[in-house]
Design a protein around this nucleic acid. Sequence first.
RNA 1: GCCGCCGUGGUGAAACAGGCAGACACGCAGGACUUAGAAUCCUGUGCCGCGAGGCAUAGCGGUUCAAUUCCGCUCGGCGGCACCA
Length: 809
Amino acid sequence: MDHHTIERKWQARWEKAKFNQFDRKSDAKKWYVLEMFSYPSGAKLHIGHWYNYGPTDSYARFKRMQGYNVFQPMGFDAFGLPAENYAIKTGIHPKDSTEKNIATMEGQLRAMGAMFDWSAEVKTCEEDYYKWTQWMFLQLYKNGLAYRKEAPVNWCPSCRTVLANEQVTEGCCERCGTQVVRKNLTQWFFKITDYAEELLTGLDTLDWPEKTKNMQRNWIGKSTGCEIEFECENGEKLRVYTTRCDTVFGVSYVVLAPEHPLARTLATPEQSAAVEEYIAQAARSNEIERLSSAREKTGVFTGSYCTNPVNGKKIPVWLADYVLASYGTGAVMAVPAHDERDYAFATKYHLPIEKVIEKKGGETELPFTEDGIMVNSLQFDGLFGEEARAEVAAYISKLGKGGKKVNFRLRDWLVSRQRYWGAPIPVVHCPKCGAVPVPEKDLPVRLPYDVEFRPDGKSPLAKCDQFMHTVCPKCGGEALRDPDTLDTFVCSSWYYLRYADAHNEKEPFSREAVDKMLPVDVYVGGAEHACMHLLYARFFTKALRDMGYLDFSEPFRRLVHQGVILGPDGNRMSKSHGNIVSPDEYVETYGADAFRMYLMFGFSYTEGGPWNDDGIKAIAKFMDRVEKLVLKIDGYKAGKDAPAGAQEKALAYAQNYAVDRVTKDLEAFSFNTALARIMEFVNALAKYDALEQKNIAAEKAAMRDLVLLLAPFAPHFCEELWEQTGGKGSVFEQTFPVASEEALRLDEKEYAVQVNSKMACRAMLPTSLAEEEAKALALALPEVREKTAGKTVKKCIVVPGRLVNLIVG
RNA sequence: GCCGCCGUGGUGAAACAGGCAGACACGCAGGACUUAGAAUCCUGUGCCGCGAGGCAUAGCGGUUCAAUUCCGCUCGGCGGCACCA
């Protein structure tokens, strides 16, 4: 079969019949299968796209054959940094390069033969999409979920531009090598923390990989602790957050993050210079470095003291960069005896180390960080762990100096980007009225085309006078637009909703459409999105629900992560490694069906692994074999059937076993084993076909099932086989085979017989044996008799259909 | 560093819920067909050993009648760490 011909033929027919479009009138149960949309940074599809979309399409086709009304849309996540960097380097405008890339990729995606519903296509960089992204911003703003505050950015003083973390290598600008500093800018945030608790508890309702849920749980990082207020000599109040308030009597100093608002205020004149220098130094390192426990702790004394509210002790206030401004209160109480970081710090700066927790029943070695018994803590002595913390927190609350507090590690989402290629933030800054949202009727705030995006100290949009100058929607006076654009994660936080109603000009989507199509039944994409995209999308859904735009709480019912296909050298494919493998030649040589089947057969879907093409020829060979066998069987004339005997029973078993297992494996995204079962079935069918006496009717029925089973994996190939063997309509309009329980029932099975947990022999035993019968039959076997001679049976374990284990002695 | 995951023959991998380790393939070896090769088909193939048998799921230890699977530690690799998406 020539794959070029059949791919063209069937793709044209599907297109003409609008075969891949979701049928909005159908009564069949909808099934929304979603792959993470493509990012058009490279010009062509790479193996990763194929690996994500090919197998998932096979799953979608399988669901369709099971009778579901499948919706599988595709689109492009088209804004982003790479297009802008490319523009800076080459002078090609991001809009032009992006559009060109999309055109190429879309053509390739169509040629893949996946049943994407292109009538619902979405491109985030187009006005009719980003208009609604801006609308989302306005809704969040109206509902108090968008606000402005100062936050640091990476600033390259030489390029005079903001850098993404990715553009910073070892603390320096990747372009010019200048040391990067952190600089504060006023930026927009979304209040995702309002939903922290629900984002956490909602995970329990989801059919997601356990590891992903765990990552999100840790990312949200709920902790129950205590806030404690330490009063300074000058009257300033320092609030610290701790999860170990049972150690409060051992506090030997308080540490503020260098960015803490009181850091400068608390510096005494003598310490002021040292403090300033330390703050400047801290601005140069990133969070990963700062939190590394391998790195030597640094800090500086402010010169000020504060008072421990539980014992009135006067203790010094320090600054240290192992404390982060963004978590808790940005200040911690240091208990060197019971915290590793504090211990290291206190040792270095010769601060006191006081033991206030004793190990239960053992020597206490400092630092001792586990739960223990309170000592040297006045009335609290003798209390342990959780109880001790509850008592101390209650006491602190009674003193009016704080109390129990739940904290989240999750931070609000910073959405301002000082870049060109993104959706403009729909806000006007008026000298009189302040930050004023753009009225909805004035959306979209259009991204201008003619802009200088080469870095020179200002946001690209800030230099575009035509864009910047406007009038205040409130007072009508002269005003300026917000020069920043939205993080592209904002665009991708709601695209799955737009797919449901992609051409709606009046609203982002109609309530009716999303309630019908959503939530997504299966979402497939990379695990690297576990904490950010997948959390942001959940947040958007919940926020929109509370605003009354939809009535479900979770966007993605089930989630599957495909693995990563690495380069042949085992490294991630990249230009710098020079190990990029293109799918194009393989598709050209072997065809889209063979290529996707190889991806499904050669890798464990969720694991991925280094690329090698050893098995791709085998897949082509397998398809050849199937084609020959199917056409041969189809050519037989009916009427000379052998009676149903043992061979027919074996064939029926093979057929139904394959049906049963392929169904279960496809459901589980276990494509490699599903194909293995189909191969076994082909082997069994070929073996049967080689017999002298055959039942042609049975053989033809088996052949028909084979074509149906293989159809989701090799769509063009099986459409063609279906047609050539006289099938009516499309193979995908047929019902996926259902296994017959009867044919799968076996009278006996091979048991493993063990003596003292060691294999003695294998034996065919009737299934559903009672334990005593199994034991008797096993004991009667010659190999078992030999090994149990003269010994008594102490115990017998029987696993029905599998194993008998005799414990003798 | 922190959080999460992974580690099985020469190779890709499989193993339901703790129950026969290596399904299905690739490769290799031998054979059939062939003038020859290609293609196709058949047989064998974890390692050691002539054999009986022994040893094997990164390494060490534990729980269990039984561990690739559960627990602890060690080593190695991967993903994420909030401005790559």
